[in-house]
C-alpha cells in the first residue's frame, strides 16, 4: 500500500479547474519533485494533498498507517507573516500542535522533541531570537524544524530554496537529502529542474505537459529532455 495515492485527482478553486486527472503514488522513502511553470497549480495540488482545500474530483488515499495530521508542511515563504513577533522556540514548538491535540499545554516530551529538531537543523543557538530577524536560510531551517516536529514520515515542501543564495541552497538540498536518507518521505515543489533530477527519485511534471514517473524515465522522456535543455540554456544565459 502506498503512503499517498491520488486517483483521477482534479484540483482547483470552486469552478476553476487548475490541474485534472492526476494519477500518482508516493511510497515510503520516496523523494518526489513536483515541477512545472509558474501558475501551473503546484501549490494548489500541495494544499489539496494537505487537506487545506477539498479536491474538485477524484480521491486522495493515505496508507501505511499515515494519519492526515502526520504530515509536515513547509509553506511557500510568502505565506508567513513578516512582522510577527514570535521566538524561534515558540515557532518550532508549535510544530507539536498535532500531537498535543486538545491538551492545553506542551509536555516535557514535546519540548524535548522540539529541542532535538532545533539541534538537528542547527538553529538551537537562536532559540530565543525573534524569527523575523533571522536570515532567509535560517528562517527556512526553523520552519523545517517545525515541520519535523509534526512528522516522522512525510514532509511536504513548497519551494524550500526560493530566495536563498547558491551556497545556502546547496546546504538546504543536502539537509533535505539527509532527511530522506533517514527514511522521511519527501514531496517537494521546485523550479530548479537540475537539482530536482539530481536528488529526486520521482518526478511529477504538471502544467502544459504531464509526466509522472521515476527520475530515470523522466531523463529519457521528451518532456524531461526538453525542459532540462531549456534549464541548461537558462543557466548559461544567466552565467
Amino acid at each position: 500500500m502506498a503512503l499517498i495515492e491520488c486517483k483521477d485527482l482534479s484540483v482547483g478553486y470552486d469552478a476553476d479547474v487548475v490541474v485534472e486527472n492526476l494519477n500518482f503514488k508516493v511510497n515510503n522513502g520516496d523523494y518526489l519533485c513536483i515541477v512545472g511553470e509558474n501558475g501551473s497549480g503546484k501549490s494548489t495540488l500541495m494544499k489539496t494533498l494537505l487537506g487545506l482545500q477539498p479536491p474538485l474530483s477524484g480521491k486522495i488515499e493515505t496508507g501505511d498507517g499515515l494519519l492526515p495530521n502526520e504530515i509536515g508542511y513547509l509553506p511557500q515563504q510568502s505565506n508567513i507573516q513578516k512582522d510577527f513577533p514570535a521566538s524561534v522556540w515558540e515557532i518550532v514548538l508549535s510544530g507539536c500542535q498535532g500531537r498535543k491535540g486538545i491538551r492545553p499545554f506542551y509536555n516535557a516530551k514535546e519540548k524535548a522533541l522540539a529541542l532535538e529538531n532545533m539541534e538537528k537543523m542547527s538553529v538551537a543557538g537562536f532559540k530565543n531570537r525573534c524569527y523575523r530577524e533571522l536570515s532567509g536560510g535560517q528562517q527556512q531551517r526553523v520552519l523545517l524544524a517545525r515541520a519535523l516536529c509534526a512528522t516522522r514520515k512525510v514532509l511536504l515542501m513548497d519551494e524550500p530554496v526560493s530566495g536563498l543564495d547558491p551556497k545556502v541552497t546547496a546546504e538546504m538540498y543536502e539537509l533535505i537529502d539527509s532527511l530522506n536518507k533517514e527514511g522521511i518521505t519527501i514531496i517537494m515543489i521546485s523550479h530548479d529542474i537540475a537539482a530536482a533530477v539530481n536528488y529526486a527519485s520521482h518526478i511529477l511534471h504538471i502544467g502544459g505537459t504531464y509526466f509522472y514517473g521515476t527520475k530515470e524515465d523522466y531523463l529519457k522522456s521528451n518532456v524531461g529532455r526538453f525542459f532540462l535543455s531549456e534549464a541548461g540554456e537558462g543557466g548559461l544565459a544567466n552565467a
Binding site: K47, L50, G51, L52, P68, N69, I71, Y73, P75, N79, I80, Q81, F84, A86, E90, I91, S94, G95, Q97, G98, K100, P104, F105, Y106, R146, A150, L156
Partner: peptide, 23 residues
Amino acid sequence: FIIFYNKIFDVTFDEAFAKSAGT
C-alpha cells in the same frame, strides 16, 4: 485565553500549517 493560548498562537501565526496539523 490561558487554556487556548497555544492554539491561539497556532492559528494566528500560520493558519495553513495549523490546518495541516489537524488543528
